[in-house]
Design a protein around this nucleic acid. Structure first.
Lengths: 123, 123
DNA sequence: AAATTAAAACTACGAGTGTAGTCGTTTAGC
DNA sequence: GCTAAACGACTACACTCGTAGTTTTAATTT
């Protein structure tokens, strides 16, 4: 497993679009992101090329069409980010994290059901 | 509740020392951090002054002694960071986060017990 | 009081980020 | 084939971050 590149806040938003569907041409990505972000198209192009340089995505040129596609999985990036976050904020242990989210009532009933089920099944 | 300032990775490490005990003079903070980090004392001073500028801590000058003390609570910062992380990585919903950590077997048995208890008690 | 010293403040600097303008090349219509 | 339009590549710029050197200030020692 290659270590995932560092992906910044803005870059995540771009990657999410690609993880949702790929390959995609720049134009579609720009259109999709414009729904949520106030970004100039060139800004998105820049992010795409930085992600390319970081080897987070690959560019396939087909005729006059450039297609963008992730090179790293969402799963792997989520894993890496989670690790960093957990270490930084909760000193690396999960319990305080859970306690935190539980206290903040960010847990819905269905979340709990799902979790319990997972716990029963898994080890 | 004042919104917490953005605190970077390195700054977190400094704040942790202050949250653990405060007020403290720079010298003690430097000594404490030197156990874990390979930082030049000036680096820590810089971090302290940036945190001061961000209003994350206050400096009390008593005679020739400068004492550093948090202005923002750990709880509030943890909350802010968690929010950002959750939005960025898990699109704002807790369930995928829990599923993630559950799958990665980062949950110990005692974590589960604690969590269940919390859930039973809280609403 | 002058010299020494220790700590805080200021300065620095390269890499990364958010944001976008300009250049150059390829494609497509006239 | 020539000109315009599209799009990727390159350039830019201010700001942040990690990291630390230099200057100033203030206290302590002689």
């Amino acid at each position: 497993m290659p270590k995932t590149p560092d992906i910044t806040e803005s870059e995540w938003k771009v990657m999410k679009v690609l993880w949702a569907r790929s390959p995609q041409p720049a134009y579609d990505i720009i259109e999709e992101l414009s729904k949520r972000e106030q970004w100039h198209p060139n800004t998105i192009k820049t992010l795409l090329s930085r992600l390319h340089k970081k080897k987070a995505l690959k560019i396939t040129k087909y005729k006059n069409l450039y297609l963008y596609e992730p090179l790293v999985s969402e799963e792997a990036c989520v894993q890496a980010e989670s690790e960093t976050f957990l270490n930084r904020v909760f000193g690396g242990s999960v319990k305080p994290l859970l306690v935190h989210f539980a206290k903040k009532q960010k847990l819905t009933t269905s979340d709990l059901e799902e979790l319990k089920k997972l716990l029963r099944e898994g080890k």
